[in-house]
């Protein structure tokens, strides 16, 4: 536990030692507001909720989370510091968890900094704040799943750009598998079981309910499982490739 915390501290500070975290948070805040106000029609909807804001999170995370995840292992391998890290008396899962929690905290911080939107909606109307808290938690949880995929891709390649692109591709598959584009192409010929399976892999399907404030155990379980599975895959990959 102590080890994870020390590793977490180092990683977290690392994000702020370079402009990475600031740029990320800045872009996240700007884009999420742009989406909420201009595309989501925050005012036009005339409803005191943040659905217009949360609905775009999967698409925002699709590009932004890989950007923050891409350096996690790739840089470590490129600079050779992985050799130092792995010969310290810490285990790979502690390192993985430390890295994940650090990046996840940066994402959490970015989410927290969207609080002016929450204040606005409270000023303009009387929203159900319970729903908003639940949606925030759901969004953060989903960000964790994106992050785990991004870290796994970062373990695959020493090159951060390749890691970034791979992560976007895999994340995209997970996002769109529930969208009408994909589902329509399955409709008509595929059995409904397959259709449901494909749809059930989607971040969109599982986030939809959470954005509305419904926290169901299966959605929570889904994001938790996806996160753990991809983190574990990343761990196996880095064990294999650390010396390349």
């Amino acid at each position: 536990m102590a080890h994870i915390f020390i590793l977490f501290k180092r990683e977290f500070a690392g994000y702020f030692a370079s402009p990475v975290a600031y740029v990320f948070i800045g872009i996240f805040l700007v884009l999420s507001s742009v989406f909420a106000f201009f595309i989501g029609g925050f005012y036009e909807r005339g409803q005191a909720d943040l659905l217009a804001f949360f609905n775009f999170h999967p698409w925002l995370y699709l590009f932004l989370v890989p950007a923050i995840a891409m350096r996690s292992w790739a840089e470590e391998r490129k600079s050779g510091s992985i050799e130092l890290l792995m010969t310290l008396p810490v285990s790979t899962w502690q390192v993985t968890l430390g890295k994940f929690l650090a990046a996840w905290s940066v994402l959490g911080l970015a989410l927290i900094l969207t609080f002016p939107l929450w204040l606005t909606v409270n000023y303009l109307g009387e929203p159900d704040n319970g729903i908003i808290v639940a949606a925030y938690l759901g969004s953060w949880l989903m960000a964790g799943a994106f992050l785990a995929i991004g870290m796994c891709m970062s373990a695959l390649s020493k090159n951060q750009i390749i890691a970034f692109i791979l992560a976007i591709v895999v994340c995209f598959l997970f996002v769109v598998s529930g969208s009408s584009i994909v589902l329509d192409s399955f409709k008509g010929w595929a059995p409904s079981l397959l259709l449901d399976t494909v749809a059930s892999f989607s971040f969109l399907t599982h986030f939809e309910a959470m954005a509305k404030g419904v926290i169901a155990l299966n959605d929570l379980g889904y994001f938790f499982l996806v996160t753990v599975a991809w983190l574990y895959a990343g761990l196996l990959i880095i064990e294999q490739k650390k010396a390349d």
Binding site: G14, S18, S79
Partner: peptide
């Protein structure tokens, strides 16, 4: 781990975390 605790190691090229 027990062994790593008792070893001091300087890897080739002396890698470190440059931002620290």
């Amino acid at each position: 781990k027990d062994i790593q605790e008792r070893i001091g190691y300087l890897p080739e090229g002396a890698p470190a975390y440059g931002d620290m």
